[in-house]
Amino acid sequence: MMNPQWLKSFATLAELGSFTDSAERLGITQAAVSQHIRHLELQLGPVILRSKRPLELTPAGSALLDYCQQIDRAHHHLMLRLSDAEATCGEVSVISPGSIGLRLYPLLLSLQEQHRDLTVRHRFAPDSEVIDAVLHNRYEMGLVTHKPDDKRLEAHPFAEEPLELIVPANTRVTGWNDLEKLGYIDHPDGQAMATRLLGRLFPGNPGIRNLPQRGFSNQIGLILEPVARGLGFAVLPRYARLAFTRPETIEVAAEGNALVDTIWLVHRAEWPLSARAQLALAWLQRHL
């Protein structure tokens, strides 16, 4: 790695175009600036054309200046990430299950519109991937539907989200026979969700596996599309329904008997959340 002082002298010389002015700004002698440039040129070849006034960079000099600027940007980014004093700069990183994520991401973008120096990085993932990503510091915080028992993680209740039985608009469901007529639209978590909710709504039912399956999708934003077209029913968390773009084509059956799940916020236990993450959490909890 090249000496940082040499790089600083070169970047200043590239900006000012004068050894004398560069030495004055850096608080060193002109001879010291010249020596720093010679050290660089021993490694890279000529980086400036001394015969030109003002000085001109060679192709190697242009590449070196770009390298210096990248270092400056990386240093600035590091300082933002390490600074808890500045809550409105830097990256907010969140990983969450699909349903709650559909609600969170637009809210985070609204926060970013107010603070343009923030960067939002969000990923949809199941609980197991959320926990792994937070444990390995790929994301600062995550949301899960089951409280983890890993001592390396802190977990706090974040929100409540009911499971809902969602049917085509103007569809009446009074018993298990109505579900058999509709058929089931499945998704990756569908069997588990449907078993839990339908067990409450229709005690003693023969089980979700005994219903005709009319479709399957692993895209959270598309699961309700076949329901909207009258092709079946689905069991999903509420935020997935609220994010659906054609709410008039679906409705919630047996709404008063919803099964409510707790959404848990998780982060590494060894250190506190950054000021940016705390700002984002406060924003989300105000607007959810």
Rank of each mutant, 00 (worst) to 15 (best):
A14G: 09
T29C: 05
Q30I: 02
Q35V: 09
H36F: 01
H36I: 01
I37C: 02
H39G: 09
L44C: 00
L49F: 09
S51C: 00
L64D: 03
D66L: 13
Y67A: 10
H76P: 00
H76A: 15
H77A: 14
R81E: 14
V92Y: 02
I95F: 02
L104F: 09
S110K: 14
Q114H: 11
H115E: 08
D117H: 13
V120W: 04
H122F: 15
A125H: 01
P126Q: 02
D127T: 02
E129H: 06
D132F: 00
D132R: 15
V134F: 02
H136C: 07
E140P: 07
M141G: 04
V144I: 04
V144M: 00
D149P: 01
A155N: 09
P157D: 05
P162F: 06
P168A: 09
V173I: 14
K181H: 12
K181N: 11
I185S: 08
A192E: 14
M193I: 02
R196I: 10
R196E: 14
P203D: 05
N205L: 03
P206I: 11
N218D: 15
Q219S: 11
E225G: 01
E225R: 13
L231I: 05
L231D: 11
F233H: 08
Y239Q: 13
Y239I: 00
L242T: 11
A243F: 10
T245D: 13
E251Q: 15
E255T: 11
E255M: 09
A258L: 03
L259C: 05
V260L: 04
I263H: 03
W264V: 07
L265Y: 04
W271I: 06
A280S: 07
L284Y: 00
